[in-house]
Amino acid sequence: MTIPPACTVVVPTYNRSALLRHTLDSLCRQRLAAHDSFEVIVSDDGSTDDTAQLVAEYRDRLDIRHLFQEDEGYRVAKARNAGIAYARSRVCVFVDSGVILRSGALAAHLAAHRQTSTPAAVIGYVLCFNEGNEDGDEITKSLDFADPDASFAEFTAGHRWPDIREDYYARYGEDLDALTAPWLMWWTCNASASTELLRETGGFDEAYRSWGAEDVDLGYRLREAGARFVLRRDAAAIHVPHPKSYEDNMRSAAANYRYFAEKYDTPVARLVPDHHFHEIEDILRSRGLADGEVTDRFGTVTRPIDDRDAEAQGGVRS
Rank of each mutant, 00 (worst) to 15 (best):
I3P: 07
V10D: 02
R16F: 09
R16M: 12
A18Q: 08
T23H: 00
L27F: 12
R31T: 11
L32R: 09
H35A: 14
I41N: 00
D44H: 07
A56R: 12
L62E: 08
R65F: 00
Q69D: 12
E72K: 14
G73A: 08
R75D: 12
A79T: 05
N81C: 12
I84Q: 05
S89E: 07
S89P: 09
S89A: 15
C92Y: 02
V99N: 12
I100G: 00
A108R: 14
L110N: 06
H113F: 09
A120D: 04
G124L: 06
F129Q: 08
N130D: 13
E131L: 12
E138M: 08
S142H: 10
D144P: 08
F145I: 11
A146Y: 03
A150W: 01
F155H: 06
T156Q: 15
A157L: 13
A157I: 09
E166C: 15
E166K: 15
D167P: 03
Y168Q: 03
D175E: 06
D177C: 03
W186C: 04
W186L: 03
W187D: 02
T188Y: 04
C189D: 02
A191E: 04
S192N: 08
S192L: 10
A193C: 08
T195Y: 02
G203S: 06
D205N: 14
R209Y: 04
G212D: 12
D217L: 07
R221F: 06
E224Q: 15
R232C: 08
K244V: 13
S245G: 14
Y257Q: 13
Y257V: 04
E262T: 11
E262Q: 15
K263H: 15
P267G: 14
V268H: 11
R270E: 11
F277Y: 05
F277W: 02
E281A: 04
R285H: 09
L289N: 03
G292A: 06
G292Y: 06
D296C: 09
D296M: 07
P304S: 13
A312T: 00
G315C: 07
V316R: 03
V316K: 01
R317K: 03
S318P: 00
